[in-house]
């Protein structure tokens, strides 16, 4: 349960598709002029991601990854078809989008009217393929987590496009320098928003503790050799001393930060 909650918030805020990895940037810039259309596209992205990521997870698990074909019999256990993942993922996405479009049109015309025009656009949205590829490279363990990952990444994308659309509606009344109007200012605003979103990075620090500890171990011997105390981190000392001390400065700074 805890890992589900962690993955959920991590995908929405820390690894936000738009602000951390720039996925789906084209539609993000093209369809964010009005809040209503942005909401429509955002909802469609959530929906398609939540469907395709678990589906591609199954494909990856039982068809593509190293040894995935073992369920067919021991003689198939050596196959590694992962080089086919791009083509299979994109085919799944394109067919799913088409299928979803047909089903939605049949059973819910009102939803189709609001989502429908965005669905074909989504087949070539990098956020969708990116979701599946990140699912594969981050080695997500269970089908439930894959669904969770798709859903929460979609929500993160939705929040991002909603926020930029709202800002763009307001900025129309501002006096932006002429060459920056339209595209330029949108890029810069997105950059500033991404810097803002970086502050969420401190929310979950569970996984990051291992790396600095290794550095501490590595530093210890050099300290003994040069016989320096913690005071030795002063800049002036490192400048006049020899190579061993100079190497030490960044490492000991890390120690102090901890």
């Amino acid at each position: 349960m805890l890992e589900h909650i962690e993955l959920f918030f991590k995908s929405i805020f820390i690894d936000n598709m738009v602000f951390a990895t720039f996925l789906g940037m084209c539609s993000y810039l093209a369809v964010s002029k009005k809040v209503t259309t942005a909401v429509g596209l955002g909802a469609a992205v959530i929906f398609v991601l939540a469907v395709t990521v678990p589906l591609n997870w199954l494909l990856d698990q039982y068809l593509l990854r190293d040894g995935a074909l073992a369920w067919l019999g021991p003689e198939y256990a050596d196959y590694n078809l992962s080089f086919l993942s791009f083509i299979l993922f994109i085919a799944t996405i394109a067919t799913m989008v088409q299928l979803v479009e047909i089903v939605v049109e049949k059973f819910s015309p009102s939803l189709y009217n609001s989502l429908g025009i965005f669905l074909p656009l989504i087949a070539v949205n990098c956020a969708i393929l990116g979701g599946s590829l990140f699912m594969q490279s981050r080695d997500i363990q269970t089908l439930g987590l894959a669904f969770n990952y798709g859903l929460s990444s979609g929500i993160g994308w939705f929040l991002a496009i909603l926020a930029i659309a709202a800002i763009r509606e307001k900025i129309r009344y501002s006096n932006v320098p002429a060459p920056l109007r339209g595209l330029g200012i949108t890029f810069i605003i997105t950059g500033l928003m991404a810097i803002g979103f970086m502050s969420f990075g401190g929310m979950l620090t569970g996984g990051d503790e291992a790396a600095p500890q290794e550095e501490v171990v590595a530093v210890a011997p050099t300290q003994e050799v040069s016989g320096l105390t913690a005071d030795a981190t002063q800049q002036d000392l490192t400048q006049k001393e020899n190579g061993t001390v100079q190497e030490e400065t960044p490492a000991t700074n890390n120690l102090i930060n901890e």
């Binding site: 602000f19 330029g184 950059g191």
Partner: peptide
């Protein structure tokens, strides 16, 4: 080196390019 700066650098490139060629400036 952080990812947000890529966006801001592109913003600046657009700014420079459109200042040099005013025909590219968008309405709005």
């Amino acid at each position: 080196l952080l990812s947000p700066m890529a966006l801001i650098v592109v913003g600046i490139i657009i700014w420079v390019q459109r200042s040099r060629n005013p025909a590219l400036i968008e309405e709005n």
